[in-house]
């Protein structure tokens, strides 16, 4: 895996995957991009293709139909990459817990680095989740050194 350099902390491009969420978390993610929170000042940018992304922002409890798509999204992101789960659904299934159509929380399908709890989490919490992701990158740098 290529070694992440320091510029990762200041230029994290994010791809947003909705795996069957109710759009609550998705709107909070968009709220983080608005002038009030403005995550672009930290270099965080929402990109349109998983190939450009450094982090996968997953919302929703993963319905059966989304399993293979989620795996493919994960595989399409070039290394080094990380996965941030936003919202209670992705962590435990949330209100959809034990539903017949659930393929499980996100971490049953792809490896997850950061969990952001909340239904939906506040934009501050999402920004805090991204900061936690930076801490993981710092650890990666330490391991590779």
């Amino acid at each position: 895996m290529p070694k992440p350099n320091r510029s990762f902390d200041k230029s994290l491009w994010v791809f947003h995957v909705n795996t069957g969420s109710c759009n609550g978390c998705d709107i909070e993610i968009l709220a983080a991009l608005t002038p009030r929170y403005d995550v672009e000042r930290f270099g965080i940018k929402l990109v349109g293709s998983p190939r450009h992304a450094d982090a996968l922002l997953v919302t929703g409890p993963v319905s059966r139909d989304m399993v293979d798509k989620l795996k493919r999204f994960y595989e399409q992101v070039p290394d080094p990459k990380e996965v941030i789960v936003v919202g209670s659904c992705g962590i435990s299934g949330g209100v959809f817990h034990e539903s017949y159509d659930l393929a499980g929380p996100v971490d049953r399908i792809i490896p997850v680095d950061v969990y952001v709890p909340g239904c939906p989490p506040r934009p501050e919490a999402i920004i805090d989740g991204v900061v936690k992701a930076w801490m993981k990158l710092e650890r990666l740098r330490g391991e590779n050194r």
């Binding site: 895996m1 290529p2 070694k3 510029s7 200041k10 672009e40 399409q76």
Partner: peptide, 23 residues
């Protein structure tokens, strides 16, 4: 009406892109 990224942001972006995996 935003603060916006620092002026050197594109340099950081390019530096990051050059160390990513090339698929």
């Amino acid at each position: 009406w935003r603060v916006g990224p620092p002026v050197i942001q594109p340099f950081l972006d390019v530096k990051k892109l050059f160390c990513k995996e090339n698929v």
